[in-house]
Amino acid sequence: MKNNSLPTDVEPAKTDPRIKLITAKIKKENYKPDALIEILHTAQNAYGYLPMNVLKFITKALHLPPSRVYSTVTFYHFFSLKSKGEHTCLVCTGTACYVKGAQLILNEIEKQFSLKPGQVSADNKLGVSVARCIGACGLAPAVVLDEEVHAKVSSEEIVNSINAKIAV
């Protein structure tokens, strides 16, 4: 099975709004190692799971032993290390995106693919999840399709993009 999780050794792009969100959180917590759980929450909420390279990014920023970060992540059921589905569609349902019609997008996805947030298609081709603000509010409504941020999207556009992805 193909896993669309990011390659673990590629550093996350500094321009990714989600990395900016995590960096802002780390700064707000003053780089305190004690704030690990709060920062992991921010990351999990922004990505829908915790990609390995994002974990490495956080570990480095907080100067923590890798094993402690991994231990924390695997202890709490709230955190997940894997994204489900070959292709993932993460719909932001933060306030800005919600106001700009995130629910309509989710409704359309459900209509077209019979998938609710948290579900994966029977053939494992597509997984749908939601995030609580990915840090791109100015681009609302935002959807992340396989790590590409789609800004100011309409339901039709995103359905078309998904169809293009799962066709291959």
Binding site: P66, S67, V69, Y70, S71, T74, F75
Partner: peptide, 19 residues
């Protein structure tokens, strides 16, 4: 700090770094 413990219950295992 190479070692730590991952998971919970009967699935706990000793890990080095990120497993």
């Amino acid at each position: 700090h190479n070692w730590n413990v991952m998971n919970r219950g009967y699935q706990v295992r000793i890990i080095s770094d990120f497993d």
